[in-house]
């Protein structure tokens, strides 16, 4: 388990990183926190010609509030997001998800942008930013562009980011009054990738969910919005009946992967259980607010 031979370049500026990406494209891997990349290199599952280390690009790290949105730089470590008062105040969904992101040691090195760019289907953060309607900024020597989270995740470890583009930042709208959030996942062990999970951002009126983003992860090949489940409950007073309706409708939204973590039927069942539980909690929070 030794990494193959490759060239290593430490970028001192974003411009330099972009120039290297422009030159090498698919042949280059960006090294940020390295928590997913290094194991794949050591297992020789990934053999880039060039490793572009962006860890010195301090400009890419940091959390700030701008125009009713929280800007999280791509190189911001998970631990910094977890500790951030800004995130706690404005993005409580992400604050709630953060302890589920791997383990302390991984969170100390792993980066927010890295998790988004990798698009592991079982990762928590892609689901959260999709639920919150975030915008992802990427840049290449061809210029900068913004991509809506809804357009970003294309499939298993596949995103809209092009090989020559570097993920710069994620902008996430601050949680508005009148909305509630809830986050739940099921993993075999604390810190494991989930088998089933859901990020929920809901607008409520009393006991009624008027609109919601329910984003499921782990069971599908990408974070997946459940439009049918939401349609089954929108505008209705939350009840055993609407819970059952949402759970039933979920099979129209999800098509779980059959893999080592379990069968498709098992995962659909778990996602249904989480649907009821996450909406129970959202209503509970709306009531308390």
């Amino acid at each position: 388990m030794k990494a193959p031979k490759m060239t290593y370049a430490r970028a001192d500026s974003v411009a330099q990183a972009l120039a290297l990406l422009a030159e090498h494209g698919d042949g280059a891997n960006v090294l940020a926190g390295g928590q997913s990349l290094m194991p794949t290199l050591n297992m020789r599952l990934s053999k880039p010609d060039l490793l572009i280390d962006i860890n010195r690009l301090e400009d890419l790290a940091g959390i700030s509030v701008e125009d009713d949105a929280v800007r999280i730089g791509a190189l911001t470590r998970h631990a910094a997001v977890q500790r951030s008062p800004i995130v706690a105040e404005h993005l409580p969904l992400i604050a709630e998800a953060m302890p589920h992101v791997a383990h302390v040691a991984v969170r100390n090195r792993g980066t927010f942008g890295g998790s988004i760019a990798l698009a592991d289907p079982a990762a928590e953060l892609p689901a959260c930013i999709l639920a919150l309607g975030a915008t992802i900024t990427v840049e290449s020597v061809r210029g900068r562009r913004d991509i809506a989270a809804a357009d970003f995740f294309k499939g298993l470890f596949e995103t809209e980011r092009q090989p020559d583009e570097l993920l710069i930042e994620i902008r996430i709208p601050c949680q508005r009054p009148g909305t509630v959030h809830a986050f739940m996942e099921l993993s075999r062990r604390q810190g494991d990738f989930a088998i089933a999970g859901v990020a929920c951002a809901a607008e409520t009126d009393g006991e009624t969910v008027t609109d919601a983003k329910l984003v499921y992860f782990a069971s599908e090949d990408r974070p997946t919005l459940a439009a049918n489940a939401v349609a089954a409950i929108a505008g209705k007073v939350w009840s055993d009946e609407s819970r059952s309706a949402a759970m039933a409708a979920l099979s129209e939204d999800l098509d779980p992967m059959d893999n080592l973590q379990g069968s498709a039927a098992f995962k659909l069942h778990l996602q249904r259980v989480l649907t009821g539980r996450v909406l129970d909690q959202a209503i509970e929070r709306a009531r308390a607010a």
Binding site: R188, I195, G262, S263, F266, H269
Partner: peptide, 8 residues
């Protein structure tokens, strides 16, 4: 092993 899937 008694996995959740086995239990269900």
């Amino acid at each position: 092993p008694m996995t959740p899937e086995v239990v269900l």
